[in-house]
């Protein structure tokens, strides 16, 4: 069996876990949506150069509409959707792909593992994001 198939098989075995995790918020110490940019998260910032208020995401988001920038920095309280200027990916392996449109549609900006950048296509036009393997660049 190839690695991705093993991965898929392993996933089948963890569907119950996934359902439980989906149904309840994460209990881990690096909690998403807490305004701190921590390990394994994609953080979107209101201003360029990773400045201003941020929102931290652990899992993919098909539409940013429900989320607002957190904390007290510039832009706090503003909707994340279509208002992010920069991003930081704190995951060591997975690429975060930020899309122009909802549901992972339209052009996209890639934020490579452990990197930060100003958004290009999706500067103030960020609607959704997904995590992708690097080789091949397959997004979930």
């Amino acid at each position: 069996m190839t690695p991705i198939r093993r991965l898929a098989a392993a996933a089948a075995a963890t569907i119950l876990t996934s359902v439980l995790v989906t149904g309840a918020s994460a209990t881990a110490s690096a909690v998403e949506h807490d305004g701190g940019c921590q390990g394994l998260e994609l953080c979107l910032y209101y201003n360029s150069g990773q400045s201003g208020a941020l929102h931290d995401f652990r899992y993919r988001v098909s539409d940013f509409a429900p989320y607002r920038f957190l904390g007290s920095g510039k832009g706090a309280g503003t909707p994340v959707k279509n208002n992010a200027a920069s991003a930081a990916n704190r995951d060591g392996y997975f690429t975060a792909r930020v899309y122009f449109n909802s549901g992972y549609a339209g052009p996209a900006d890639d934020v490579p593992p452990l990197s930060a950048r100003n958004l290009g296509d999706t500067y103030n036009d960020n609607a959704s994001f997904n995590w992708c393997h690097q080789q091949p660049l397959v997004c979930g």
Binding site: L7, A11, T14, T17, Y59, R60, F94, W131, H133, G140
Partner: peptide, 12 residues
């Protein structure tokens, strides 16, 4: 529908 590839990896 596609799998959340990253969630799979971390949970496996």
């Amino acid at each position: 529908s596609t799998t959340d590839v990253r969630r799979e990896f971390y949970e496996a």
